[in-house]
Amino acid sequence: MEQKGYIHVYTGNGKGKTTAALGLSLRAVCAGKKVFFGQFVKGMKYSEVKALEYLPNFEMEQFGLNCFIYNEPNRDDIEVARKGLQRIKDIINSGEYDVVVLDEVNIALYYKLFDVDEVLEILKNRPKNIEVICTGRFAKEELIEIADLVTEMKEVKHYYNEGVMAREGIEC
Rank of each mutant, 00 (worst) to 15 (best):
R87S: 13
I88Y: 01
I88Q: 04
K89G: 07
I91P: 01
I92C: 12
I92E: 02
S94Q: 06
G95Q: 06
G95S: 08
E96N: 07
Y97V: 12
Y97Q: 09
Y97L: 08
D98W: 04
D98T: 11
D98P: 04
V99G: 09
V99L: 15
V100F: 02
V100R: 06
V100Q: 05
V101N: 09
V101D: 01
L102R: 01
L102N: 07
D103T: 12
D103F: 03
D103V: 04
E104S: 00
E104W: 00
V105L: 09
V105R: 03
N106V: 14
N106T: 14
N106F: 07
I107M: 11
I107S: 10
A108S: 07
A108V: 13
A108Y: 05
A108C: 10
A108R: 06
L109C: 12
Y110W: 06
Y110I: 03
Y111M: 15
Y111V: 15
Y111D: 15
K112W: 03
L113K: 09
L113F: 05
F114R: 02
F114G: 09
F114H: 04
F114N: 03
E118M: 12
E118V: 10
E118P: 09
V119W: 02
V119R: 03
L120N: 09
L120T: 10
L120S: 10
E121M: 06
E121S: 13
E121R: 03
L123H: 00
L123P: 01
L123S: 04
N125T: 15
N125D: 15
R126A: 11
P127T: 13
K128G: 02
K128A: 11
N129E: 12
N129K: 10
I130M: 04
E131S: 13
E131C: 13
E131L: 12
I133P: 10
C134L: 15
T135K: 01
T135A: 02
G136P: 00
F138T: 09
F138H: 13
K140D: 15
K140V: 15
K140G: 07
E141M: 09
E142N: 01
E142C: 04
L143N: 05
I144H: 02
I144S: 02
I144G: 05
I144V: 15
E145P: 00
I146W: 02
A147M: 00
A147S: 04
A147T: 00
L149K: 05
L149V: 15
L149M: 10
V150N: 12
T151Y: 00
T151R: 04
E152T: 13
E152H: 01
M153V: 12
M153D: 11
E155Q: 10
E155Y: 00
